[in-house]
């Protein structure tokens, strides 16, 4: 019967697909473990560094190019960190959707700096302004790979072109949960102001006995410290989105493998039913033939 042959062919093809998705699942699982470990082990550094800068900017009144705010700049820089490849479910689409929150303010023009192939193609299709494209490597990112990116952004900020700089990336919560998030990289202060409003009394009372001693003078320390902190924040965001990418892909591929298994089961059932029908029909024919002969 023709129907049976078709079903058999479909089973074969679905089995082939399942082999591929399973292989991709295993590869992503291995990458995921590594990426998750890296993201988790660099978290203390970036959070402690962030804490330090928040503590410092709260009480320091030093004029450094990176600590200035540019109220009259018309643009905001948005660093969009996506994946290079697809097969990650809605990860990249959600990420680009998150940009809408930043575009609410009509006075400011969002200029994108994209890191990752998908961000580039998705935003280019939507006709957004792309200021720069820093291609992402397929291997795990080392902190040295971030330097050019950090330098580009800080230079634009220091030359008064960007009012603010944001990072939009996928934060890794767990293997099954990743959410797009926005963090403000520069200037350091507004977030600090917002935080200190909640516990203003504490801040004021601490202001006197709370002065950090600098060795050598503050400008020298901050000169080294600020770029490092910016780099570590970007680096952390890249690691988080790597971990998110591999986790999302692993889950997607696992779903695909499971779905292929279900499909094979369904097809096998129909195949067996058809085969049984055929056998029954044949038996009926044989019996009918035999009766006719008697």
């Amino acid at each position: 019967m023709a129907g049976m042959r078709d079903i058999k062919r479909r089973i074969k093809s679905v089995q082939g697909t399942r082999k591929i998705t399973r292989a991709m699942q295993l590869v992503s699982a291995a990458k995921m473990r590594k990426a998750q470990y890296q993201a988790a082990s660099s978290r203390p550094y970036s959070s402690l560094a962030w804490e330090l800068i928040n503590n410092l900017t709260r009480q320091l009144e030093i004029d450094m190019p990176l600590l200035r705010t540019h109220r009259h700049a018309k643009k905001v820089g948005v660093l969009l960190i996506s994946t290079n490849r697809g097969f990650v479910g809605s990860l990249n689409v959600n990420l680009v959707g998150k940009l809408k929150e930043l575009e609410k303010n009509p006075e400011l023009i969002c200029e994108l700096v994209v890191h990752g192939q998908q961000a580039k193609t998705l935003t280019a299709r939507m006709g957004k302004v792309i200021g720069a494209d820093f291609p992402k490597l397929d291997k795990t990112t080392a902190i040295e790979d971030i330097y050019p990116l950090a330098k580009y952004l800080t230079d634009l900020y220091q030359t008064n072109q960007y009012r603010k700089i944001y990072i939009v990336y996928n934060h890794f919560y767990s293997t099954i949960s990743q959410k797009p998030e926005i963090i403000q990289l520069l200037p350091f202060s507004p977030e600090v102001v917002r935080q200190s409003k909640e516990k203003q009394e504490v801040v004021i009372s601490k202001k006197y006995g709370y002065n950090y001693q600098f060795e050598p003078e503050p400008t020298k320390v901050l000169e080294h410290l600020l770029p490092r902190i910016i780099e570590s924040q970007i680096y952390q965001a890249v690691l988080e989105s790597d971990a998110s990418e591999h986790s999302a892909r692993m889950i997607m591929m696992k779903n695909a493998t499971d779905a292929a298994g279900d499909l094979i089961d369904d097809l096998t059932l129909s195949y067996n039913q058809l085969r049984q029908n055929k056998i029954t029909t044949e038996l009926a024919e044989i019996t009918a033939g035999k009766i006719a002969l008697e």
Binding site: L52, Q213, F214, E215, V221
Partner: peptide
């Protein structure tokens, strides 16, 4: 080791930031 030479920190040190 800091920019200005080796320093030793004991408990209850004043708040400090150094390279």
């Amino acid at each position: 080791p800091t920019d200005l030479g080796q320093i030793t920190i004991l408990p209850n040190h004043v708040p400090l930031v150094a390279n």
